[in-house]
Write a protein that binds this DNA or RNA. Structure first.
Lengths: 337, 337
DNA sequence: GCACTAAGCACAATCGGTTGTGCACTAAAG
DNA sequence: CTTTAGTGCACAACCGATTGTGCTTAGTGC
């Protein structure tokens, strides 16, 4: 059953069947037949033949000749949280809407994998590359530049290509204010607040820390250095960092600013294992997870606006900005206030 | 800076630079130069030239000539849960290990999108297609067959291609037994248990219901039809179904078998909104989410063995089974007992 | 000195499309 | 009846790689 298809149908086969020529078949299938003065009769015949024979164009051949692959690439740290997975999903559907085929590669926040994935994308001649949450966005932008491919940064900014990111500082400030408000309501205005999660070197984390400190300053509060724990993006790291933090303290901090849902996982796990009630502490999480929201309705979250971010990305692709260092910030939404 | 690359380097350019010929360059870059008796000296010269000029082969041209794209495709319902996202991620890394480029497309559990994505995959001449959680796997398998492309089903089985799925019935049975054991411990052996979530038509849900009933039968319990609510995969649907279910009842069921984490989301949300304590009820969820586990350590979950499933998939790709209807079941792990 | 072998490489066809160009034919105009 | 203007289509070059084949030159044996 699978043996009857030694070859896929080509335009040459169709031309033979329609008693026409490959170039005519090609023109008909591309819709350029009117411009080439192919008769409607022949066009119809070829089209119905292509239909009935189940012809599908070989994209490699098309890409080769047109020097356009029809592919748009994205590199992504991972799929395992709602933020990145919705980025991938929305990117794909937007690409499809524009007649582009989306290819996404996971690079595990590893600069070597990022470059390797970029090399593959360039080898497959993607028309654009969106570089999401890259640890080393500039070296990727350079690779693209050398190949004459337009690239964009998403989520984490770079200097060598336009970037679309969340308004990290402003979002963190608003989330922190919400946390402080709730502390005030509970008459615990001066309780310490712990910032935990993320990478100290990465732009987003630095900005969120800045926003965090700024909000506290606005409320007349100082921020101790030991209350800032950028322990990387990993549940276990957050869990370990919190355990270590708590060894030097008598009680829980009044609230926590948790930088990413993956950190939230480690934090919540540690609190549960240590017998704390989650309601004893006020949480703000920079990132959104509806399952977490279901389990803990009092959890405040900064939900990054993925839909708008992807829209901005495609706008930049459609009309490249004159300034390659353009940085667009998209406000996250604070949920659960 | 980006203007100096009107064209990418080709083997013809390299041949000119090396004062050699395209075929020689090709042989050198492919490592077949010894077989073609190219001198080591020339090979080295060409290789270092390719290196220094940053040559990267045009995969479209290569694919066209070799009649092998080097691409492996996967269609997937969505990325937004840990099960599917880890499938995508592990699939990608395994593909990469084998020198294949992985392309994943989301199809939103929609048969039309599934076929559309398949068409694109076939147009890009994927060498294999893995069809994950497809609502209509057989029509996809047929499309692949007509193009002479090998296809496989993952997660949901089909009749027209080999399938790798979780041992749904056995897993559901074990999860149900764990639920019933815990009910017994709490002296609530005869409390009703609600099965909720999934699609009544889909193979996995049917099998899980069967396993659920079987486990209850083994404990001498009957299962009422109204306690089986396959309300589709969606948080809101589960929430609505539970609300409706509770309108005819005085109190909570003793336990719930929740078919998928997305259903869990709706269930937990409703319970919280309705003021119930989550510990009043025993949960078993068929699917795994570490964040849920962190929030609710007493939550029992059937964690599908993604690593092994993907390994089986690639084994079937490497050595296609004689029987195209082969069905391989992989045991999930019951967590939180 | 000559045939023979092997080494070292280049030529050219090919994969399946796309697209610039031009030929043959018809109909209208002069 | 000839020229002109379209109409309808086919030819052939090309995109950038891969690969079967064959040509040249050097080395070996006799």
């Amino acid at each position: 059953m699978a043996s009857d298809s030694p070859k896929r149908l080509t335009i040459y086969d169709l031309a033979r069947l329609a008693e026409s020529s490959p170039s005519t078949v090609s023109a008909v299938l591309n819709g350029t037949w009117q411009r080439r003065r192919i008769s409607k009769k022949l066009a119809t015949r070829i089209l119905s033949l292509a239909q009935s024979e189940g012809y599908s164009a070989n994209m490699q051949a098309r890409a080769l000749r047109r020097e356009r692959s029809g592919i748009i690439g994205m590199i992504l740290p991972m799929y395992d949280n709602r933020y990145f997975s919705s980025i991938a999903q929305y990117f794909e559907s937007e690409a499809r809407r524009r007649g582009l085929f989306a290819i996404v590669s996971c690079t595990n926040r590893d600069p070597i994998q990022e470059r390797e994935a970029t090399r593959m994308m360039l080898a497959y001649r993607v028309e654009h590359l969106v570089c999401t949450g890259a640890t080393d966005p500039d070296s990727i932008a350079m690779m693209c530049q050398e190949s004459g491919i337009s690239s964009l940064n998403l989520d984490l900014p770079g200097d060598k290509a336009p970037s679309v990111i969340s308004a990290n500082r402003a979002g963190a400030r608003r989330l922190t204010l919400a946390i402080l408000d709730r502390l005030s309501v509970e008459q615990r205005r001066d309780d310490p607040v712990l910032f935990i999660g993320g990478r100290g070197q990465d732009h987003n984390t630095r900005e969120r820390i800045a926003g965090f400190k700024q909000a506290r300053a606005e409320r007349g509060l100082e921020t101790a250095q030991e209350d800032i724990l950028p322990c990387d993006y990993a549940a276990d790291k957050a869990q370990a960092a919190l355990r270590a933090y708590m060894q030097n303290r008598s009680g829980l901090p009044g609230a926590m600013f948790i930088n990413s849902t993956i950190s939230l996982e480690g934090i919540v796990r540690w609190l549960q294992l240590s017998g704390y009630c989650l309601d004893d502490i006020i949480f703000g999480c920079f990132d959104w997870d509806p399952l977490a929201a279901a389990f803990h309705p009092r959890l405040m979250m900064a939900r990054q606006n993925v839909v708008e971010m992807i829209e901005r990305v495609f706008e930049l692709i459609d009309t490249p900005p004159p300034d390659p260092t353009l940085l667009i910030e998209v406000q996250p939404e604070i949920i659960g206030i």
